[in-house]
């Protein structure tokens, strides 16, 4: 068997922390986003970090520390960090939190703000266009429907209605990689 490659992902760069650059309203900005409401409930027990499966494998990924950075107004470092996008959305932290912070949802709030500011992984930035065009992330063509028919499965609508209209007004700033 071939020699195994390096097994652990490279540590994620930690956002540079500077209190002189604090944006005092950042926690409130997060709290106003869908899912962000309970960010201030955190009393820093660290149950989220203790059970986070991403933290087990990605050095530098630490939910408790991310919450502190948000509460301390580190707006740019958090929004420009790749860390929020490394959440696997397993909801373990959210189910574990004794304070009901809802950290999985808080991270969605952070990612929404970051996306509006133009920071998001390029691959994710392509998805709205794909949905507009096909109504699904994977395109259905005659080829797929032929495969389906071979297994006795009914044909699927190639372009379900409404997706173009629903997403007509949604646009992303040109992506800066997060």
């Amino acid at each position: 068997m071939a020699e195994p490659e390096t097994q652990a992902p490279a540590p994620a760069p930690w956002p540079v922390f500077d209190l002189n650059q604090a944006v005092l309203g950042f926690a409130d900005e997060v709290a106003r986003e869908p899912g962000g409401a309970h960010i201030r409930r955190c009393y820093a027990c660290g149950a989220c970090s203790a059970r986070c499966p991403v933290a087990d494998h990605l050095a530098g990924f630490d939910p408790r520390r991310l919450i502190r950075l948000i509460l301390l107004g580190q707006r740019d470092p958090v929004l420009q960090s790749p860390l929020p996008w490394r959440c696997s959305t397993c909801y373990t932290c959210q189910e574990t939190c004794p304070q009901g912070v809802g950290f999985t949802e808080v991270l969605f709030a952070v990612k929404n703000i970051a996306a509006r500011a133009g920071f998001f992984p390029p691959a994710l930035g392509l998805q709205p266009d794909i949905l507009r065009a096909h109504g699904r992330l994977l395109e259905i063509t005659d080829f797929e429907n032929k495969n389906r028919a071979d297994l006795g499965l009914p044909a699927i609508t190639e372009r379900p209605a409404h997706y173009q209209a629903m997403l007509a007004r949604f646009s992303l700033k040109t992506g800066e990689e997060a």
């Binding site: 709030a109 709205p128 992330l137 609508t157 629903m166 949604f170």
Partner: peptide
């Protein structure tokens, strides 16, 4: 239902309300 498509989850990171 012929017009079922994406559930919306892929959009949640970019815009939860969409």
């Amino acid at each position: 239902l012929a017009d079922f498509g994406c559930c919306g989850f892929p959009m949640k990171s970019l815009n939860a309300e969409e």
